[in-house]
Amino acid sequence: MGFKLLSKLLVYLTASIMAIASPLAFSVDSSGEYPTVSEIPVGEVRLYQIADGVWSHIATQSFDGAVYPSNGLIVRDGDELLLIDTAWGAKNTAALLAEIEKQIGLPVTRAVSTHFHDDRVGGVDVLRAAGVATYASPSTRRLAEVEGNEIPTHSLEGLSSSGDAVRFGPVELFYPGAAHSTDNLIVYVPSASVLYGGCAIYELSRTSAGNVADADLAEWPTSIERIQQHYPEAQFVIPGHGLPGGLDLLKHTTNVVKAHTNRSVVE
């Protein structure tokens, strides 16, 4: 069995187990497998329904001669939608809004960016022009300005110390501490036991640490421990890039980060 097929099978099995364990909360999309990078042309966006009122959005972007996937989250909030992270750029984010209108038909009224990198804030200006209120932590807003990236308009308070959590509509926002970046936030959907790890969490097929220019490698494993301790009931975990899975993604990420750190020390 090929690795790609095995990865998709694991996603399907995880979703099936969740649907059985929580039949009222989960209505997993039966329309197909989780979209992969090879299936999404740059400039297009796919939506994948995880649970009743919960979707991931998947886009792709060219970077350094390669094409990478990027995940975000959409959560229903009454007759409105909360968006977590842009679709990595203005063109993708405009396509995301169009796809949401086509498939869901509810307005996106608020959006949260989970850290300051372009795959999370690139497209904020498109959201703002569409009347979406954009939010991020003060740290993310400051770092985005320093980096020359787009800056969300509103500040999220109460997320300055490791372990801080605040309720934001249908989700809980959690600051686990520094990891992929010093400002990275985690998003949890309690009604569906869905954990969105953003770039602080890796997919299972990833074996290298990737972009760690703004990471705190020493603190990252401790931050992941905080996530595990705060959300032990999480059933569906979405990484910032690639295929979702279960809580095993947290341990896998820790292993990859520690291996990278150990290699760096040896070198």
Rank of each mutant, 00 (worst) to 15 (best):
M1Y: 03
M1I: 06
G2L: 13
F3C: 07
F3K: 15
K4I: 13
K4N: 13
K4W: 06
S7R: 09
S7W: 12
S7K: 11
S7Q: 12
L9F: 10
L13W: 11
A15C: 14
A15K: 06
A15W: 07
S16P: 12
I17D: 05
A19M: 15
A19H: 06
A19P: 14
I20C: 10
P23L: 12
L24N: 15
L24S: 14
A25N: 14
A25Y: 13
A25C: 14
A25W: 14
S27Q: 14
S27W: 10
V28E: 10
V28Y: 13
S31K: 10
E33S: 10
E33H: 09
P35S: 08
P35F: 08
V37L: 15
V37E: 15
S38R: 10
S38D: 12
S38F: 11
I40G: 07
P41D: 14
P41W: 07
V42W: 06
V42L: 09
G43Q: 05
G43L: 04
G43I: 02
E44W: 08
E44C: 07
E44K: 12
V45G: 03
V45A: 08
R46Q: 09
R46Y: 10
Y48I: 15
Y48F: 13
Q49H: 13
Q49N: 12
I50M: 09
A51W: 08
D52M: 09
D52I: 09
W55G: 01
W55A: 01
W55L: 02
W55P: 01
S56K: 08
S56Q: 15
S56L: 15
H57S: 04
H57A: 02
I58L: 09
T60C: 06
T60F: 09
Q61G: 06
Q61W: 07
A66I: 15
V67D: 15
Y68R: 06
Y68F: 15
P69V: 15
S70A: 05
N71P: 00
N71T: 05
G72M: 01
L73P: 06
V75C: 03
R76W: 06
D77A: 07
G78Y: 08
D79M: 10
I84Y: 00
I84T: 03
I84A: 03
D85F: 00
T86K: 04
A87F: 01
A87R: 01
W88S: 00
W88R: 01
W88V: 02
G89T: 04
A90L: 06
K91G: 14
N92L: 03
T93W: 00
A94V: 14
A94Q: 14
A94W: 11
A95C: 05
L97W: 02
L97R: 01
L97Q: 01
E99G: 09
E99W: 07
Q103C: 10
G105L: 07
G105H: 15
T109H: 10
R110V: 10
V112H: 05
T114L: 00
H115D: 01
H115W: 00
H115Q: 03
F116N: 05
F116W: 15
H117D: 02
D118V: 06
D119A: 06
V121C: 03
G123D: 05
V124C: 04
V124D: 04
D125W: 06
L127Y: 03
L127H: 04
R128V: 10
A130Q: 14
A130Y: 13
V132L: 03
T134K: 01
A136S: 08
S137N: 07
P138R: 09
P138E: 10
S139C: 05
R141V: 08
R141P: 05
R142D: 11
R142V: 13
A144Y: 04
E145H: 13
V146T: 14
G148V: 04
G148C: 04
E150A: 05
E150T: 04
I151Q: 03
P152E: 00
H154D: 07
H154L: 10
L156D: 02
L156T: 04
L159S: 02
S161C: 07
G163Q: 06
G163F: 05
A165I: 12
R167P: 11
R167F: 10
F168Q: 02
F168R: 02
P170I: 05
P170H: 03
E172C: 03
Y175I: 00
P176F: 00
G177R: 02
A178M: 07
A178D: 05
A178E: 07
A178L: 05
A179P: 04
S181W: 03
D183C: 00
N184C: 00
N184M: 00
I186C: 02
V187I: 08
Y188F: 11
V189L: 05
P190C: 03
S191Y: 11
A192Q: 12
V194R: 00
C199N: 02
C199H: 03
A200E: 02
Y202N: 07
E203S: 06
L204R: 13
L204M: 13
R206E: 07
R206A: 15
R206D: 06
T207K: 14
S208E: 12
A209I: 08
A209C: 04
A209F: 08
G210A: 07
D214E: 07
A215T: 07
A215I: 04
D216R: 07
L217E: 05
L217N: 04
A218W: 10
W220I: 03
P221V: 11
I224S: 01
I224L: 07
E225K: 12
I227E: 00
I227C: 01
Q228G: 10
P232A: 09
P232Q: 09
E233N: 13
Q235E: 12
Q235R: 11
F236Q: 10
V237N: 00
I238V: 10
G240V: 04
H241P: 04
G242Q: 01
L243G: 09
G245L: 02
G246H: 08
G246R: 09
L247M: 13
L247N: 13
D248W: 06
D248P: 08
L249C: 00
K251S: 12
T253M: 02
T253R: 00
T254D: 11
T254F: 13
T254A: 11
N255T: 11
V256K: 02
V256R: 03
V256C: 03
V256E: 02
V257G: 01
K258L: 11
A259N: 11
A259I: 10
H260F: 08
N262C: 06
R263N: 15
R263G: 15
S264I: 12
S264L: 11
S264N: 14
S264V: 12
S264R: 13
V265G: 13
V266E: 15
V266I: 09
